[in-house]
Write a protein that binds this DNA or RNA. Structure first.
Lengths: 137, 137
DNA sequence: ATACGGCTTCAAGCACACTTGAAGTCAAGG
DNA sequence: CCTTGACTTCAAGTGTGCTTGAAGCCGTAT
């Protein structure tokens, strides 16, 4: 069934081998099967790495990704805990889409006039400020 | 006209004062007017900070943001350089929206079955892998 | 035999975006 | 007077996500 070496996986996934070992270290990838001490991968790892990449591109942390992809492996994860996390992340993604569309508008309007103007930001200002208080509080 | 202290700006923008000083250091904010050695801000800084926040939320680096918001201040920035940057960032934002919608689908399908499955990722796999070669190359 | 390429581990290093701590200035209030 | 609170600078520290380097093993080719 032709298992892949870490080098082949890296090449096909567009990653460095160091990244793949790191993902194993932190639990984003499960411990790989070994053959004479060396890691051997099923092609399925490429699907998983694609999901990992996607998750990273939308701003998920490695730790969040680990929690999400644990469902890939075994039944060890409590169903509803996983669902709660996934729902939260889904909400985050929806939020991101909104922000991205706002940023898109700002850039488009600014491209019209040749620079980022304050006027372009009326829509941005219409947002409540999330409290990040801890300075004197 | 009641200029704001750094503390007031921080409170109203939902930031720490250290962040605001940092933004000045790295050029995301222009050097503030001083009054007896202390920074004083126009309310307009809040609009700017809102744009900065938005840009960060969609993954722009501080350095990219600096280049973008330089247009806020003076004419010092060559018009077409700025436009080139803004266009590139606009494309990045469009990309991000696509990714976010892919991730949304993956999460929605996974929520249906209770865990992240490999099947959920067919759409993800249909993407070409960007080469991040430098391992043996 | 030995050199080569690709693999291994482990510790240390790096870039980014801030935060924290030390040491000091200044104005208002008890 | 002197304390309080908010401000100042500057250097060093933090967390995240890897990368890099040293030292070594393994199999194949010269």
């Amino acid at each position: 069934m032709a298992m892949l070496t870490i080098g082949e996986v890296a090449r096909r996934a567009g990653l460095r081998t160091s990244a793949i070992r790191y993902y194993e270290d932190v639990g984003v990838l499960p411990p790989a099967h070994r053959q004479g001490g060396q890691r051997r991968y099923d092609e399925a790892v490429l699907a998983r790495l694609a999901v990992v990449r996607l998750a990273q591109e939308v701003g998920f942390t490695v730790s969040e990704i680990r929690s999400l992809v644990e469902g890939f492996d075994k039944v060890g994860v409590p169903r509803d805990r996983w669902q709660a996390l996934a729902s939260r992340k889904l909400a985050d993604v929806d939020d991101l889409i909104v922000r991205a569309e706002q940023m898109k508008q700002v850039l488009q309007e600014s491209l019209g006039c040749g620079c980022l103007t304050l006027d372009a930001c009326a829509l941005v200002l219409a947002r409540p400020q999330p409290g990040a208080v801890p300075d004197g509080a």
